[in-house]
Write a protein that binds this DNA or RNA. Structure first.
Lengths: 106, 106
DNA sequence: TTAACATATGAACATTTATTCATATGTTCA
DNA sequence: TGAACATATGAATAAATGTTCATATGTTAA
């Protein structure tokens, strides 16, 4: 637990480039399809087709968005035969989503 | 072949509408100008012009983005004479940014 | 090898969105 | 009241982005 009474605690301002990267990260979370994918694979890994069926969306759409998630290192990939299974990369990702949910649901 | 075996229920999947709201929230964080504004006013409230000067951007740009932040209840507003002072709404907002920073900086 | 399936990708299109310019609204003080 | 200042806003523009369609790549089994 943190004590909020510290009077003059200044967090350093992150420099410009970091803030651009941060914006890019949040941009990835700022699309409902990607969010739904992340939530869908947050507990168990899933194949691309399985995700597409679950969300009732085109395989192509899911694949495109999975690439975005991959490029941002938010998902893990595992190939098994013809299928490719995706899962959330780490609990960090889940935490970010939950943090946002807290704000939305309040 | 739509026979989906019941998944092991861990956390409940947030319903569709909540995920849309969540995406909208992250969308707000997914712009570097808005992020810079939020970081800038995270410690001390600031007038619009002051923010614009600090970030070296047009007053109009800042004002437009402040409206977005206002509409999403991420900032607090206080008028004092001609000036209008903005500050971050609560520590929740700061937490979300810090959580994202953790991921970006790792 | 070929057929069937699973996934990825490029191009086109439509939609969203951030910024700028010009101007409106609102406030203070002479 | 009017001038000067601070902020907000509408319209226009340009850039970014998500989805779809068609097709390519990659894998397995016959």
């Amino acid at each position: 637990m943190e004590n909020k009474t510290t009077p003059t605690q200044h967090t350093e301002m992150p420099d410009l480039e970091v803030l651009f990267d941060l914006a890019d990260l949040f941009k990835v979370f700022g699309d409902s399809t990607r969010l739904r994918i992340m939530v869908t694979i947050s507990e168990n890994e899933m194949s691309v087709l399985n995700i597409a069926e679950t969300l009732n969306m085109e395989q192509s759409t899911i694949s495109h968005q999975l690439r975005v998630l991959r490029q941002n290192k938010l998902v893990r990939v595992r190939r098994d035969g013809k299928q490719i299974y995706y899962s959330l990369d780490d609990d960090h990702v889940k935490k970010i989503i939950e943090m946002g949910l807290d704000h939305v649901l309040e």
